[in-house]
């Protein structure tokens, strides 16, 4: 069997559909000289759910951090919903892209769930009533209403991951970028997360090693290897290609 060639989704597919995430020839090296991304080209349509897979060190986290300009040259190679990510658009971009980090202890830095979910809306400069309403709505979306005055260290990992998602949902982003959301979850919590991801209307770009979750939630998968897009296509095709999976050390456990 021949290995399917890496076939970047071409832009004409999106002609009539809004483009949500666009990376054009994006490269990045960390200050210590480590090159993490090489000429990434990527287009994701509004509302698409895309999985980002690949071994540790492939550059998944680095790529996600480019989406809202935490990393990157801010020279317009990345754009979100048609807006190039530059220094001038940074505030706008951060409201558009909700980034959820792998460790909820990094994401949840406030003493209470309420404070944390309110952090984004508050720093967007929204009026108080709207902040409160958004917090209530975001917590309802992830099924954590009633936990407002709980403290993160009193909650299970699954609950903290849900709240972590709520902390960006409250900013009403158009794009959600989640870094390894199912890592370390027990089966019940993982199931809850999968159901949550299925219901979210946003454009989703999610890095993960959990291929069974990919099957359930994401119609499209991108394989990243050594900072390059090694493959990009429909999930069912990729998962049917045993040689491809083997080449990138992916296993459908």
């Amino acid at each position: 069997m021949t290995i399917m060639a890496a076939e970047p989704t071409t832009e004409h597919v999106y002609e009539r559909q809004a483009i949500s995430v666009h990376l054009r020839d994006t490269s990045f090296a960390y200050p210590d000289g480590r090159e993490a991304l090489h000429g990434i080209n990527l287009t994701i349509g509004a509302g698409e759910k895309v999985a980002l897979v690949g071994p540790n060190g492939a550059g998944k986290s680095t790529l996600l951090l480019h989406l809202n300009g935490v990393l990157g040259a801010l020279d317009g190679h990345v754009s979100i919903a048609g807006t190039p990510v530059t220094r001038a658009t940074l505030r706008q971009i951060r409201a558009l892209v909700g980034l959820v980090f792998q460790d909820p202890d990094d994401q949840l830095f406030s003493p209470t769930v309420f404070d944390d979910v309110a952090f984004g809306p508050l720093h967007m400069g929204l009026p108080e009533a709207e902040v409160r309403q958004r917090v209530a709505h975001a917590l309802a979306q992830v099924g954590m209403s009633g936990y407002e005055s709980r403290m993160p260290h009193h909650m299970s990992l699954g609950q903290r991951k849900r709240v972590a998602v709520a902390t960006v949902l409250s900013m009403a982003p158009a794009v959600l970028a989640l870094d390894e959301p199912s890592a370390g979850l027990d089966p019940r919590a993982r199931r809850g997360l999968i159901e949550l991801l299925q219901t979210l209307p946003q454009t989703l770009l999610v890095s993960t090693h959990d291929l069974r979750m990919v099957v359930e939630v994401f119609p499209r998968t991108i394989i990243l290897a050594e900072g390059r897009v090694a493959h990009d296509g429909p999930t069912d095709q990729i998962l049917a290609n045993a040689a491809l999976l083997a080449e990138h050390g992916l296993e459908l456990v």
């Binding site: 960390y30 200050p31 210590d32 986290s61 951090l65 935490v70 990393l71 980090f101």
Partner: peptide, 9 residues
Amino acid sequence: SNRSVPSSR
């Protein structure tokens, strides 16, 4: 104050 960009693995 002028150290490098944040690391975020």
